[in-house]
Design a protein around this nucleic acid. Structure first.
Lengths: 246, 246
DNA sequence: TAAATAGTGTCTTTTAGACACTATCGC
DNA sequence: GCGATAGTGTCTAAAAGACACTATTTA
C-alpha cells in the first residue's frame, strides 16, 4: 500500500516541488482614511508601462517565505511607515488578463488609517497622493467609486484597482455597524460625535444622534475614559476608548 | 523621461516575466449542503503523505491561463459534476508552513449544493464522503467545527482545512439573513417551511414561524409559483421560487 | 448671560417574538 | 370528522427614529 511505503518525513524528502505551475502573487493595499472628514485613499501614480499615468494601489510581491498577512504588513510599513493600523484581507483578484505583463494574482488588503496615520503616511511616502473616494452610493451598493485628486480632478485607476477600491468601501460599510472597524479611523481617544461623524462619512448618510449614542453605548464596545476633550470654546465632550474585544 | 521612451506595446514586448518569485496557487472548495437536514461537507480522505489518512477539501491547481473563479468552477464540476451551484470566494490562506511540501497559496471557495446536487456529487465522485459539520457554536462564532463521518466518528482534517471549513460556516451564517444564499441549499421550488428548516439548521437555532414568514415575504426575494407541493397526507404548502436579484 | 455644543427624556414608529387561532388538505 | 400541517391575527417586547429639552462649558 502507498500508505505504508514511506513515512511522511521520507515522502517530503523525495518530493519535487518543481512539477507545478506557479504564479506571481502580490498583495495590494487599500490605504483608507478620512481627510477633512471625507473618505480618502492613498494612491501612487504609475510612472511605467503598463497603465502609465494611471493611479494604483500600493502593493508588492509576496516573498517565498513570507505569510500573506506578513507581506501586507510589510507593504503597509514600507509605504506608510506605521505598524498599528487595522489590516484585514479583502479578496483575491486573479483574472488572467488583469495585468498585461504576466499572470499576477493579487490578494487585496484593507488598511484603515486614522487621521494622524494618514498624514504620517503622506510624509513617509511622498509619492502617495490622498485621493478622495466617493461612492458606491448606498442605494447602488455594487456600483463603482469615483476617485478624485486633492484638487478635485477625476483620477483613472490602473488595472482592476477601481474594483478593489469599491470592494474596500463596501466591506467597510458592511462591517461598520457590528464590528469595531469604525474605531480604526479615529485616534485612541475620541468623542461620540467624532465616532458619529466617521459613521456618517462612511455610510454617506446622516444618523440620529440619540439613537446612535444609545446603540454605541449599549453595544458595550466603548469604555469611558473619564477625561474630556480640551481646547473647545464650548462644553467639552467626554472621551471614550474602544474596548478590547474579548 | 521614462514615460515617453516606449509605448505600452513596446514595453510589454521587452518585459521579462521570469524575474519574480512565484508560488503554487490552488483553489480549495468547501462543498456544503444539507444531509438529513443537517449541514454536511464533502471531503476526500488523503491517501498520500503529507497528512495521510486525514480528510481534505477537494481542490486543484490554478492553471496558468485560468481565472480563479474558472478554476473553482472547474474543480466543482470535476469533483461534483454539476455546474449550477452557488459558488463564491471565501478567503485566501497563505501561511508559509500550511503545506509541508512547498509554498502553496490557496484561494478557498464556498460551494452550496442543494440536496439533489449533494447526492449527485456523491455518485459522481465516489471518493467523496459526506461529513457532518457541527459548530462553530453561534455563541462562540470564532470556534472550531467538529467534523464527523456518516457513522458519527470524528474526522481529523488535513492542513488548515478545518479553519477553512469553519470560515465557510461562519460566512454562510452571516449572509443567510440578508442575501439569497439560503435558496442555494433548496431545490428550485420550495415551501416556506423548507426554507425555515434550512435557516434553522445553518444557524443552529429555532425560529419563530410567523416572524420568519413575515420577514421572508416582506423582503421581496420570494416569488409565489401558485403551485402547491404534492404527495402530502395533509394540507399542501405553497411553493415559492427565489426571485432573481436586480 | 450668550453662544455653542454635549447629552437626555420621551413619544412615536417599526420590527421581532410568542402563541393561539383558523384554514385546508388526505383519509 | 380526524389528524396533521399550512397559514394568520394579535398581543407584547424591544429597537430605532424624531425631536425637543436640559446641561455644561468658554468667552
Amino acid at each position: 500500500m502507498t500508505e505504508a511505503a514511506f513515512t511522511e518525513a521520507e515522502f517530503l524528502a523525495r518530493y519535487d516541488p518543481g512539477a507545478y505551475e506557479r504564479s506571481a502573487v502580490t498583495v495590494d493595499l487599500v490605504l483608507l482614511g478620512l481627510r477633512d472628514g471625507r473618505p480618502a485613499a492613498l494612491l501612487r501614480r504609475r510612472d511605467q508601462h503598463p497603465d502609465l499615468g494611471r493611479w494604483a494601489l500600493p502593493g508588492g510581491f509576496v516573498g517565498p517565505a513570507e505569510d500573506l498577512d506578513a507581506a501586507a504588513a510589510r507593504v503597509l510599513s514600507e509605504k506608510a511607515g506605521l505598524p498599528g493600523a487595522h489590516l484585514e484581507q479583502l479578496y483575491t483578484f486573479g483574472a488572467v488578463d488583469r495585468d498585461p505583463r504576466m499572470r499576477i494574482i493579487t490578494v487585496a488588503y484593507l488598511a484603515l488609517l486614522d487621521e494622524r496615520a494618514f498624514a504620517g503616511a503622506l510624509e513617509h511616502a511622498p509619492d502617495l497622493v490622498p485621493a478622495g473616494v466617493t461612492g458606491p452610493l448606498p442605494e447602488r451598493p455594487d456600483g463603482a467609486v469615483s476617485v478624485t485628486s486633492p484638487k478635485g480632478e477625476p483620477l483613472g485607476l490602473a488595472f482592476d484597482h477601481g474594483d478593489i477600491l469599491a470592494l474596500a468601501v463596501r466591506r467597510l460599510r458592511g462591517k461598520l455597524d457590528y464590528s469595531d472597524v469604525g474605531f480604526a479611523l479615529l485616534p485612541e481617544r475620541f468623542t461620540l460625535r467624532q465616532l458619529q461623524d466617521v459613521h456618517e462619512a462612511i455610510l454617506c448618510t446622516t444618523l440620529n444622534k440619540s439613537a446612535f449614542r444609545r446603540r454605541m453605548l449599549d453595544a458595550g464596545r466603548l469604555a469611558p475614559t473619564g477625561a474630556r476633550e480640551a481646547g473647545t470654546s464650548f462644553r467639552p465632550a467626554e472621551l471614550f476608548r474602544a474596548r478590547r474585544a474579548l
